[in-house]
Structure formats: C-alpha cells, structure tokens
Design a protein around this nucleic acid. Structure first.
Lengths: 128, 128
DNA sequence: GAAGGGTAGCGAAACCTTTCGCTGACTCAA
DNA sequence: TTGAGTCAGCGAAAGGTTTCGCTACCCTTC
C-alpha cells in the first residue's frame, strides 16, 4: 500500500496542481479549460485525474458547493522542496553540497559564494 | 516517436545512471551487483534495463570488450541541469526566480543573498 | 413530465515502465 | 565431447498512469 502523504505527483497530476496553484480553488470546468488548452485533454480525463488525485490525497474538494470546488492539498513551496530533495537524492546521492559544487564548478566562485549557496540550500531542505 | 535526446530517465534508469557515474564504465555484472544490493533486482532485469537504455540513448556500450562495457551517455552535471530545469518548468512555470524567491521567502534574506542566488541559478540553467 | 445542458463517476482500453522466465551462445576444464 | 559457468537477449507478464466512452444524476425551461 502506498503511503498517502509520500506519493510523488506524476506528470499530469503536477500539471493539474500547477493550475490549482495559479488559479486557487476551482471547479472542474475551470481546471479543465486550462488543461485542455495545454494539451487537448478530454473532460472525462480531467474529472478522472482529479478523482485519482483525491484518493491519493493530492487535492481536496468541497462537495457542498455545486459544482464541486477542488484545491491543492500541498503548497507549491512544499512540492518544490520535495522535488528538489528528490533531485538531490536521485542524482547526487543525497549530497546537497555535490549539487552546489557542481553548479559552481565551471564558473568562477569565491568561498563566500559557496557558503552563501550552502546556506540557501540548507533552507530549501527544510527541517526534517 | 519520442525524441532520443530528450528522454527523461525513469526511476530505475536513473538508479543505473547513478551507479555508472560512481563506478565509471562497467560490465553488466558490476552494475547488477550494485542494483541488486539496492533493491534485489534479478540479473535479467538489469540486462533488460540496460538494453532499453541503450535504445533510448541513455547509455553506450563497447561490444568489442567481453563482457560488454557500459557507460553513461550523459554526465551527472548535465542530468542535474536538466532535472533542475524540469523542476523549474513543472513546478514554477519556468520562472527560476520564483524558486529562488520562494526559497528565501521564509528565511531572512538580504538583497545581496538574492542577487547571489540569482547568479547561481543562472549558471545552473546553462546558456541556451 | 419531457428535453437539454451542465456535472460526476465507473470501468476498461491504451500506453509506458519494470520485472523475469526461458533460451542460446560462448568459454574453460575435465 | 560433455558439463558447468558466464553472458546476452527476447517476449510476455505485471504494475502503474493516462485516456475516454458511456451512463446517470441533477437542474432548468418549455
């Protein structure tokens, strides 16, 4: 059984989250308009994706309203943090410093810059 | 048809790339040892994944050697850049500055820090 | 109450990734 | 030559994501 809180959004799911982050809580029709604009998706598909995301806990919905209003269950900030952490884990074996060093590698970076970057990344990682 | 150069490595593919980045060019047996260690994968699976990755252009192999030697077709640096760009595109709608601002948002950041971070990210993005 | 439009949901198909059984080739030693 | 071991590859199954057809349920409005 997949842990509810730890599910990484898939490509389309992320696209929907992005729309919700931009629009704020919205009815399906609104979300669909955007998604269809971007990639010609069928209305049924949008509804299905939202229902899948609901069971995964990626979105929440207010059923009292008609039409139902959906909203993202995580913030853009949290998603960003998670993805960045994931990137560091998957590409740099968990070493944030590796990424920083690599980033500065071909450029001309002072020690001050490196320290600065380190602090920035520490903040991004958040506190476990 | 999927563009060869633009294929984003999947989870297992990335795990294999990570092994190759660490070990350098290696025979299947070596790669398999690591992969199996990490997640108990069958030998056949490792071979198959490598063959899939070969057709996708993610790895190259020297068939003159016996056993065949595989090596990553992209560097860790390039993969990191691509993933970071992808993260920015998918989560922050392509605005690197959004990510930086968000990262600094809850912390207490000086203007100097922000400028620093901007420069860092510019470098990470590479020059189109 | 019948027709039409907006809304919601289910189940199955289509597609991609990941897994592995099975097979064959090749090498080395007895 | 035969048997044991290593290496490579194919095809199909298993599992997850994404797609959509079809159905049903409200509301209006006639």
């Amino acid at each position: 059984m997949r842990q509810l809180g730890s599910a990484q959004p898939t490509a389309v799911e992320l696209e929907i989250l992005r729309i919700l982050w931009e629009l704020g809580p919205s009815p399906v029709r609104e979300i669909h308009r955007r998604l269809n604009e971007a990639k010609g998706t069928n209305y049924s598909t949008t509804v299905k994706m939202l229902s899948v995301m609901l069971t995964k806990g990626l979105v929440k919905r207010d059923e009292r309203a008609t039409p139902h209003v959906y909203r993202a269950a995580l913030t853009r900030e949290r998603a960003g943090k998670t993805f960045l952490r994931d990137l560091i884990d998957k590409v740099y074996d968990g070493s944030a410093m590796s990424l920083v060093l690599q980033a500065l590698a071909n450029g001309k970076a002072t020690q001050a810059e490196i320290d600065e970057a380190r602090r920035l990344l520490d903040e991004m990682e958040g506190q476990p």
